[in-house]
Amino acid sequence: MATLVSVYDYPSDVSTVVRKLKSRGFEDLTTYSPAPFEEIEVAENPKPSGVRLFTLIGGLTGVVTGFAMQIWMSLDWPIKIAGKNFASIPPYWIIGFELTILFGGVLTVIGLVALAGLYPRPLDDHYSPRFSAEEFGVVVRCEDRDVAEVESLMRGHNAKEVTLAASH
């Protein structure tokens, strides 16, 4: 297997080269970019992020927890005041709402940590501080016989540098 690392100046070049690489069957690739660019994300993986599922689960858990907590606590020590219900739903919407937001937000961030692998760990071998400046990187792992094809595709889309980083 060979690993080719290419460097670009513009996100449109990165998104084009990623799309072309994928269309030719080179699926094992990673992009590095100094800022968020939707075109690169879509080219690399058009599927929506799984973070939304975490938000949904968090929000639903929050609203259920909010109402369950208030209703149970009100019934746990029932005090009848002015003939009102022990558990009166309308005022409970406030805390129900707040806990929906709280749990939804916390689960969203947990989703980010899980899906983006955000925990202290060694950086990728091919990561470079250049990618947190203003340059973009595309790393492709391919068979040795495909190196020339991948390299030519990269250079054909304005790669500033193409490096054969490893070959086993």
């Binding site: 994300e41 993986n45 973070v51 983006a116 692998g117 955000l118």
Partner: peptide, 26 residues
């Protein structure tokens, strides 16, 4: 926390910011 700006990380990050914005607004 191991941030490298990979496409996968930015995708999750953007979606997180969008969702947090959506819930922070109300």
């Amino acid at each position: 926390a191991g941030w490298q700006g990979t496409g996968k990380q930015w995708k999750a990050h953007n979606r997180t910011v969008l969702h947090l914005s959506g819930i922070a607004t109300p």
